[in-house]
Design a protein around this nucleic acid. Sequence first.
DNA 1: CTATCGATCCACT
DNA 2: GTGGATCGATAGG
Length: 202
Amino acid sequence: MSKKNHLPTEFYTGSDPTFIARGLLGKLLCRRVENVVLKAMIVETEAYSHQEKACHAYNLLRTKRTDTMFLKGGVFYVYLCYGVHHMLNVVTNVQGIPDAVLIRAVEPLDGVKRMQSNRKKNNIYELASGPGKTCQAMQVNLIQNAKPCSSADLWIEEGQNVNERGIGVSKRIGVDYAGEDAHLPWRFYLKMSKFVSRYNTK
DNA sequence: CTATCGATCCACT
DNA sequence: GTGGATCGATAGG
């Protein structure tokens, strides 16, 4: 058994979600399915906080779905969107304070053939350039919900160091329903990456 | 119980 | 650029 290079717990619990969303850029999202290991670098994230309307757990709203977000930071929050696509988040903050970071896009590194097969696409730039695509490529579904970010079948490990100046910022995508909070500059991405989702809402 | 609506993607024009 | 797919969670009667 090789020792995994997991992130320390404090990484997930120690700061507000925008800081953690920035910090996750360059980290590696890893998945083991059967005997195949998939690895991909996180290149785009969005922060969600219980204090703003775009968040499922806004105002500490607790439901069957948002229960996961109330767990201590460092677990995955997975849900189904539009009845079709899974979305992968990382829960942050301490227990009882529901904040999270959505993983919106990753750059495939290992197991690319498997991801191409999962996505039924060959173009590497289209394998995980969006939150739904990322889950399809990495074979993430509701079974992963509430599992630790250091699980044997899905985990996050150290990756590239990212220079702050290499990080682009914009408002979040697809949250127009959130009123004024829709304008929060809480989407973060690697400027130089060709693997981010196409949208570039400023 | 029913109605509404997505933290999206893709095919098509 | 636009619209359909598709279904579970959610809120309200």
